[in-house]
Nucleic acid binder design. Structure first.
Length: 289
DNA sequence: AAGAGTACCAACCGCGACTAA
DNA sequence: ATTAGTCGCGGTTGGTACTCT
């Protein structure tokens, strides 16, 4: 059947953007806001594909972009989030205000990969390189190496409890794996229901579930029900509108964290206090949608 | 000084997800 | 239930700047 092209390619510019094009795009978005990228180029008088406009705006022209070098803290946060989420650059970018997925992706490929290799760690699995070479390494030894690696990577150098070692077990109550590289050696199905509060890599992986929009005064019994449901991997069967975000991945302030209707209006402290909510990370940058 | 190699990053491409008809 | 349109994401490419020999 084939796919219709996203735009009329014969009459669109490609390649680097000129200053004038940038100005037109900025002016248009300032006047009309983001959205409807397909019709934007025509309305803004640009001979560009809508996709190209969107990319240019998101990755380069947005006023809230930080630009400049990544800090050591950002490096470490990216590494931790990558270990947790895999190549979900948009999710990772959501935890780094002012950074874009493209920027982080490029930075990962050009800097952090090498940094991890220099540490003797595999950038894909975040495990020691020698551990990957020897698949026959005893599980206990592997865990020890894994633990040591976390301790080295974290300024505080905290050690993890045995039940905290699988970065993805905490996500296993989600219907889908959050990361593409998680399943080979640690089947999600074998995970036991997580304890109420878990920390991993210095990031609190407290998971909770609620229907969206979440109301602070919701019946506790309902919340308990939802938590029970989530812990049995049945979360998606009860509702398609469940708000699922991961708590405490470096949220910086109240209200940040969720794009779904009601949950974003609930202060994070309040959300954190509701032990049995199950939430899933969504891209968080305010300027994006 | 010049050519080769490498690093960086903006931009493109293709696909999946989502939605409305 | 199906189809077409649109958006967003992740992988990849290509141009440019920088470094090395």
């Amino acid at each position: 059947m084939g796919r219709s092209p996203c735009c009329e390619k014969a009459h669109t510019n490609k390649g680097a953007w000129t200053k004038e094009e940038d100005q037109r795009l900025i002016a248009y978005i300032k006047a009309h806001g983001e959205g409807c990228w397909r019709s934007l180029p025509k309305a803004a008088g640009l001979l560009r594909c809508g996709k190209s406009c969107r990319l240019r705006w998101i990755n380069y022209l947005r006023p809230d972009l930080k630009r400049g070098n990544f800090t050591e803290e950002e490096d470490e946060l990216i590494i931790k989030l990558h270990e947790l989420l895999g190549n979900k650059w948009s999710l990772i970018a959501g935890r780094l205000p002012g950074r874009t997925d493209n920027e982080i992706k490029n930075y990962w490929n050009t800097h952090i990969k090498r940094k991890l290799l220099a540490r003797g760690m595999d950038p894909h699995t975040h495990r020691p390189l020698n551990a990957i070479a020897g698949a026959a390494m005893p599980a206990q030894q592997l865990r020890a190496a894994h633990q040591h690696q976390y301790a080295a990577a974290t300024p505080g150098g905290h050690h993890l409890q045995p039940q905290q070692q699988d970065p993805f077990a905490a996500l296993s109550s989600s219907a889908e794996p959050a990361c593409s590289h998680s399943s080979d050696d640690e089947p999600a199905g074998s995970a036991t229901p997580p304890p109420p509060s878990r920390r991993h890599l210095g990031i609190d992986l407290n998971l909770s579930i609620s229907l969206a929009p979440y109301q602070p005064g919701d019946d506790p019994a309902v919340k308990q029900e939802a938590a029970t449901t989530a812990s049995h991997n049945n979360a998606t069967t009860s509702t398609s509108a469940a708000c699922m975000c991961l708590n405490h991945l470096g949220f910086q302030g109240a209200g940040e964290g969720c794009r779904c209707g009601g949950a974003s209006s609930v202060p994070m402290q309040q959300q954190a206090s509701t032990q049995h909510m199950f939430r899933f990370i969504a891209p968080l940058e305010g300027g994006r949608q």
